[in-house]
């Protein structure tokens, strides 16, 4: 097999990798915000439950979570696992896992906001939701961009864990080709792909940071 065909196959896998990446962000970023509200809730049961969830998601391997989410319908509910569920399970597990990390990032950001910002908004008549959306959240986003960048870069690499469910993303394919051809070249090529992907991610996040650089 020549280089070109290897690349062609890898690129197909790359499409799936990119899909996992964006879908995970799409679901985990808002879910993380909701979870951080739960974590900061004054209602003890809500707070306790959120805290427990976050600690479990961060304290157990993502690979294990992928397997659990994939097989749970069968072992827990005795349902037959359909072929289409594989991809759903991957996204579900990634989103549930990354939401926990993002929740803690949001929480740190929200708690770092000076209380004077809330008080100024309150005295000016803003409602709670309005104050949060217009005054607090934009400033929180600026503050949490660096840790979110870290998490996002980790996510690019973590997508490769989907191989445990034999999801046809780039790493799974690279491994298959490498085994068949007894060559490390496909794996090196995959590595290069991840690296370039992350360069792009880092570049984009840097651009966002610059965009938010207009105030201090």
């Amino acid at each position: 097999m020549n280089l070109a065909t290897v690349f062609l196959q890898l690129i197909k896998g790359m499409g799936v990798t990119i899909e996992i990446f964006f879908l995970t962000l799409l679901f985990s970023l808002p879910l993380g915000l909701v979870l951080s509200f739960g974590r900061m809730s004054r209602r003890k049961p809500v707070q306790g439950l959120s805290k427990f969830y976050i600690s479990v998601m961060r304290g157990t391997p993502l690979m294990l979570q992928l397997i659990v989410v994939y097989f749970a319908p069968f072992y827990v509910f005795g349902m037959r696992i359909s072929a289409g569920y594989r991809f759903t399970a991957v996204i579900l597990a990634f989103a549930l896992n990354y939401a926990a990390y993002f929740a803690e990032i949001y929480r740190a950001g929200i708690e770092s906001m000076p209380v004077g910002q809330y008080e100024a908004a309150k005295v000016l008549g803003y409602g709670r939701a309005q104050a949060f959306c217009k005054i607090i959240l934009p400033q929180v986003i600026k503050r949490i961009l660096p840790p979110v960048t870290n998490e996002t870069i980790t996510l690019v690499k973590d997508t490769s864990l989907a191989f445990v469910l034999a999801e046809a993303e780039m790493f799974t394919i690279a491994k298959q080709i490498a085994a068949k051809e007894t060559s490390v070249m496909p794996l090196m090529a995959a590595g290069l792909f991840y690296y370039i992907f992350n360069l792009a991610v880092a570049g984009f996040m840097e651009y966002l940071e610059k965009r938010l650089d207009y105030y201090r």
Partner: peptide
């Protein structure tokens, strides 16, 4: 005392 303007 410390203004609390909205920096953004």
């Amino acid at each position: 005392q410390n203004f609390n303007l909205f920096p953004h």
